[in-house]
Amino acid sequence: MSAVITGFGVFTAFGPGADALRAGVFAGKPGFAPVTRFDTSPFRGGHAAEYPGADPALPRVPSQWDVLLACGRSALGMAGLSDAERAPLLLGSQGDFTAVNRYWRAEAAGTALPSADELSVSVPGALADRLGETLGLGPRRVTFTNACVASATAVAQAAALVAAGRADVVVCAGAYVVDEEFFAKFDSGRAFASDGVVRPFARDRSGLLLGDGAAALVVESEEHARGRGAQALARVLGWGYSNDAFHLARPHPEGAGMASAIGRALERARVRPEQLGYVNAHGTGTPANDVAETRALRAALGTAAAGTPVSSTKSMTGHMLEASGIVEAVITLLALTDGILPPTANLDERDPECDLDYVANEPRAARIRRALSVNAAFGGANTALVLERP
Rank of each mutant, 00 (worst) to 15 (best):
V4E: 12
T12C: 05
P16H: 07
G24V: 11
G24R: 06
A27M: 07
A27R: 14
K29T: 14
K29P: 07
G31Q: 14
F32Q: 10
R37I: 00
T40I: 03
F43I: 07
H47G: 00
A48R: 11
Y51S: 07
G53L: 01
D55Q: 09
P56G: 12
L58N: 00
P59G: 04
P59A: 13
S63Y: 08
W65F: 07
L69I: 10
C71L: 10
C71M: 10
S74P: 02
L90R: 11
Q94G: 15
G95R: 03
F97Y: 15
F97T: 13
T98S: 13
V100K: 10
A106C: 09
T111I: 10
L113S: 06
E118I: 02
S122M: 11
P124Y: 02
G125L: 02
A128P: 09
E133T: 14
E133P: 00
L137V: 06
R140M: 08
T145F: 02
A150F: 03
T153I: 09
C172S: 14
Y176D: 13
V177S: 04
D179P: 01
E181R: 13
S188V: 05
G189P: 00
F192P: 02
R199I: 02
G213Y: 12
G213R: 02
A215Y: 04
L217C: 12
S221R: 06
S221F: 00
A225Q: 11
G229A: 08
R235F: 05
P251W: 09
R272N: 09
V279I: 15
P287G: 00
A288R: 14
A299R: 15
A305P: 07
G307F: 08
S315N: 03
G318T: 07
M320S: 14
S324W: 06
G325C: 11
A329P: 06
V330F: 04
L334T: 08
I340L: 15
R350S: 15
R350T: 07
P352Q: 02
E353K: 05
Y358I: 04
A365M: 08
L372G: 00
F378S: 00
G379S: 10
G380A: 05
A381V: 01
L385K: 10
